[in-house]
Design a protein around this nucleic acid. Structure first.
Lengths: 171, 171
DNA sequence: ACCGTCATGTAATCGGTTACATGATTCT
DNA sequence: AGAATCATGTAACCGATTACATGACGGT
């Protein structure tokens, strides 16, 4: 129950998911991440074992082993966890994303624009179609958040496609 | 000279800058990063002390202390370093950026769209003006890479502005 | 039976971040 | 002269990634 650990984005992902689903094992968390937030902010599966432990030690989650079979650990959010999550949600942030794009980095240091653009275009177009398919099958009910961020993903993939096309065609 | 360390983006930033300027102290690297790549991919200043050491141990850089005064360490790229850099530059990548935007993450988990949009809009608009000012004063000669990535930055900030405006106005 | 992939987890490493420090300049 | 900021560096910690492992299950 030792408090005061630093809460990172990964922490909030765990807290946020557990707030939604009630309780889960690390493996279930992995599935949940893959089902949505994952293309927003990826988390290695190993971290979905260590992070809940950390959060539990700090009192944000409870942990108990399943009695039979694999004796897996199930985690659930506590009141403390919920209020930490809510405090975080309530504070809008001015922080900006960095681009942090490996392709751009190569471009910066002199990588061949056309070759980079070709490779990147392919990848971004694929991802864009991916997103669009997801959105097409989205019933549109359910919470607003995931839908809005999916929209962000689409907008950004489109922008990347535009960008790399420009680079390619200028080459 | 122990070889075979893993080269990370930070490594390539150091290699790339040293390839351009010949040699530098960590502090000078810090300035160089701030002058450009920094808004593409930020690097903590402390890492500009440790990373060159690592690279030097692995034979990608040479290191020697200045004789007088502060006895700072100056680093220069070796042939091995240069060829590692070039190999990296020559291989286009299919890797995609993730969004990794703290604001989006909050949105995903139910943060208030209008509040988030307001805060984010302000920050992105500022950054956009910033980039535009930079581009306005760019002579436009010099290597292509930085100019092209600046263009990416502008395109993306514009997309973010569009996006958050939509979110705000839909709220 | 065998092979591959999914399910599930632990251990070790290490890059990157944060915190701490101190001298030199510049501004008020 | 004192405050603030820039210049310059070291040390410690720890979150995140990589590597390693093993059992179950579906298909051929």
């Amino acid at each position: 129950m030792q408090d005061s650990i630093r809460l990172t984005p990964a922490s909030y992902i765990v807290l946020g998911l557990l707030a939604q689903v009630g309780e889960a094992t690390p493996y279930e968390l992995k599935r949940l991440v893959a089902a949505g937030v994952g293309n927003l902010w990826s988390v290695q599966h190993a971290q979905l074992y260590s992070e809940p432990e950390r959060l539990a030690r700090a009192g944000y989650l409870t942990e108990h082993r399943e009695p039979g079979g694999r004796r897996r650990k199930r985690y659930a959010i506590t009141a403390g966890g919920r209020s930490a999550l809510e405090a975080w949600l309530a504070a809008p942030t001015h922080e900006l994303t960095e681009l942090r794009d490996p392709g751009l980095l190569k471009l910066y240091f002199g990588g061949d624009p056309v070759a980079l653009a070709t490779a990147q275009l392919e990848a971004h177009e694929r991802k864009l179609h991916d997103y669009r398919r997801t959105r097409a099958t989205d019933p549109g009910d359910g919470p607003r958040g995931p839908w809005l961020t999916l929209d962000a993903g689409i907008g950004h993939e489109r922008e990347w496609v535009r960008y790399w096309r420009r680079v390619r065609d200028a080459g």
